[in-house]
Simulated scan of single mutants.
Amino acid sequence: MVERRGASLWLTHALLILGVLVVFFPIWLAFVASTVTQPEIARPPMPLWPGDRFFENYREALLSGVNVPVATMLLNSLVMAIGIAVGKIVISLLSAFAIVYFRFPGRTFFFWTIFLTLMLPVEVRIVPTYEVVAGFGMLNSYSGLIFPLIASATATFLFRQFFLTIPDELAEAARVDGAKPMRFFWDIVLPMSRTNIAALFVILFIYGWNQYLWPLLITTDPSMNTIVMGIKQMFPSGDDIAEWPVIMATSILAMIPPVIVVVSMQKLFIRGLVDSEK
């Protein structure tokens, strides 16, 4: 490892600090705006330090909303994000395991068929998907929010590539010991995939949390709105005045769950991206 000393070390740290400040400054402004009054935001210059309306604004944000409390929308988004992440991981694990460890006709064809679905995002197949969900009576439900989005060709591909790095001797040893395929999957393959699962969970959780178009399409009941939909609905139309402190407080609340997931799983996330655990 080459150590960097002198001016280059200070320059590197200065650039890193500058980058952090550039990224963090808009978030800080949003937090400040969530702790002041409406006139303080409307009157330039905007304050750069928190005000004394923190508890009042956040209480109003949690207990109010356009049609439903923000706390309910946060719960809906949390259920949807966890359901999508867990569903994608489970289906992708089983699909990749079957493709790698089972011999059946057309195995390669089916894999590439799954992989080609990457070219068909939700927006392209949204009309037939909506018809199927409506036909099963899953509108305005958690199942309608989650099930159409849990198939993941990307996760299947990543798990397949990882399973191919597992030595064949492990599968042979398990077979000699009398382990059935699912016992081999549960006791050997799954523990070895722990960091990969963690890395994908973080990515897929944020993907599910940020969904807007699909929830907007299938939810007509305000009690099923997600937090991303709620923030959009808070913006005024026509000559209405925006309650910016409440909107900013809601935006800060919407960032907290993804931040908690990333911070709590950062070590496994980094290992899952850089360590194959061969």
Score class of each variant (00 low, 15 high):
172 E>P: 03
55 F>R: 12
278 K>G: 14
11 L>R: 07
65 G>L: 06
209 W>A: 08
149 L>C: 01
231 I>Q: 07
107 R>M: 03
103 R>Y: 10
174 A>D: 11
2 V>H: 15
164 L>I: 07
141 S>R: 00
276 S>M: 15
251 S>C: 11
50 P>L: 10
169 E>G: 06
245 P>E: 15
93 L>S: 11
252 I>V: 14
35 T>M: 07
224 M>P: 01
94 L>R: 10
14 A>E: 12
161 Q>D: 09
154 T>Q: 03
209 W>M: 09
269 F>R: 00
178 G>Y: 05
64 S>E: 05
175 R>V: 08
80 M>I: 08
193 S>V: 09
25 F>G: 02
179 A>L: 13
24 F>R: 04
161 Q>T: 08
203 I>L: 14
223 S>K: 10
80 M>Y: 00
255 M>A: 11
66 V>C: 07
198 A>D: 04
43 R>P: 02
37 T>K: 03
256 I>L: 12
113 T>H: 05
33 A>P: 01
250 T>A: 15
163 F>N: 02
47 P>M: 08
2 V>R: 13
139 L>G: 06
231 I>P: 05
223 S>I: 08
37 T>N: 04
16 L>E: 08
219 T>C: 13
13 H>S: 14
8 S>E: 12
233 Q>E: 13
114 I>K: 00
266 Q>L: 02
272 G>R: 01
230 G>N: 10
139 L>H: 04
144 G>Y: 03
215 P>R: 03
262 V>D: 01
243 E>C: 15
117 T>L: 01
32 V>W: 02
113 T>P: 07
220 T>E: 11
241 I>E: 13
218 I>S: 10
118 L>R: 10
164 L>M: 09
82 I>S: 08
198 A>P: 05
12 T>Q: 14
222 P>W: 08
64 S>F: 06
147 F>V: 15
2 V>I: 13
182 M>D: 00
133 V>N: 01
131 E>Y: 07
111 F>C: 03
119 M>H: 00
219 T>Q: 12
188 I>G: 08
132 V>F: 05
240 D>S: 13
51 G>T: 15
140 N>H: 02
265 M>H: 03
245 P>R: 12
201 F>E: 00
163 F>L: 14
55 F>M: 13
94 L>A: 10
119 M>F: 07
109 F>D: 01
274 V>D: 12
216 L>V: 01
43 R>H: 11
8 S>K: 13
100 V>M: 11
31 F>E: 10
184 F>V: 07
78 L>W: 04
235 F>Y: 14
85 A>R: 00
261 V>N: 03
106 G>E: 02
105 P>A: 12
257 P>A: 07
270 I>A: 05
76 N>Y: 04
193 S>M: 15
133 V>D: 04
32 V>S: 01
180 K>R: 15
50 P>F: 11
202 V>H: 02
46 M>D: 06
252 I>E: 10
242 A>C: 11
278 K>P: 13
208 G>W: 00
140 N>V: 00
175 R>N: 05
67 N>V: 02
223 S>P: 03
187 D>V: 15
230 G>Q: 09
228 V>H: 06
250 T>P: 09
26 P>H: 05
112 W>S: 01
